[in-house]
Computed example of a mutant assay.
Amino acid sequence: MKSAVVTIKELSFLSGYSISTVSKALNNKKDISSETRSTIQNIAKQHNYIPNNYAVALRNKVSKSIAVIIPKLTEGFYSKALCVLQKEADIKNYRMLFYQSFGCEKKERTYLNSLNDGSIYGIIVISDDDSKINDYANYTMPIEVLNIKSFYTDDQIQLGSVQSLSKLLGA
């Protein structure tokens, strides 16, 4: 089954222009004519073209996405942290992806390894294990550990979550 998402390659076919020219038109580059740019942009609009944010992030080496690895979403104290992180990420114009490790270190490592491809800005690992802070030195991307205990108050969870995101983003 073919995807409903229109790609630059498909826009190239539909417009009759090269992929390079389509890319330039969609990025408002001035080295193509305004007529060509307008034609391609109209075709893109007709087909509801949406840029692939991950491809853009890889090309520009800048991503506005962060990942959060959480042990178990159904634990109230973890879900509170996730809620705060989501709200704060939205305020800072970052998208958030989350992954559940279910407390499995192997699953956590698999996520970390697959996310280390440049498609995201950084990762927040939520944990109740104080020793995790030193586990991520070998990764090239920013990783922040948000340590949360089950007995933390809502205020402590909120403060820790905000601080963790700010530290990850360098703010």
Rank of each mutant, 00 (worst) to 15 (best):
N60W: 00
Y17S: 01
S63Q: 15
N93P: 02
L146I: 12
N60F: 00
L169N: 02
R59L: 15
C83G: 09
G170K: 00
Y99A: 14
L112F: 03
D135Y: 11
N28K: 12
T7L: 06
C104K: 14
N93S: 12
G16S: 05
N93C: 10
E35H: 10
N28D: 14
Y152H: 13
A171G: 12
D117F: 05
N134Q: 10
E88Y: 09
I50R: 10
I50N: 09
G103M: 03
R95V: 11
T74N: 12
S131F: 05
L85P: 07
I50W: 03
P142V: 01
K107W: 06
L11G: 07
Y111C: 12
I120D: 09
L146A: 14
I123E: 03
N53T: 14
G76D: 13
F98P: 02
I19R: 04
T153S: 15
K9Y: 06
Y136A: 09
Y121G: 04
D31M: 02
K92I: 10
K132R: 08
I91Q: 13
A25M: 02
K64W: 03
Y49W: 08
L169V: 04
Y99T: 02
L11D: 04
V5Y: 03
K45M: 08
D154L: 11
R95M: 14
Y17G: 00
K149L: 12
S164G: 07
I148S: 12
G16C: 07
L97S: 13
K64N: 15
M96H: 07
N42M: 06
D130F: 07
S161H: 00
S164M: 06
S20F: 00
I43E: 07
K64Q: 15
S114E: 13
I133A: 09
N116I: 03
I8H: 01
Q156V: 07
A67H: 11
E105N: 14
T21V: 11
I157W: 00
L82N: 09
N147K: 15
Y136S: 10
F98A: 06
V62L: 14
V6T: 15
K24R: 11
I133D: 06
N52C: 04
Y49A: 05
S101P: 05
I126T: 10
I124C: 08
S79Y: 09
T7F: 03
V5E: 04
D155V: 10
S12V: 05
A81V: 04
C83T: 14
S18E: 09
Y121K: 10
R59K: 15
V62I: 14
K149V: 08
N147G: 09
M1Y: 03
T74W: 07
T140Y: 03
G16K: 06
G118C: 05
N138L: 09
A89Y: 01
T21Q: 06
K132T: 06
F98H: 12
R95K: 12
K30Y: 01
G76F: 12
Q163D: 11
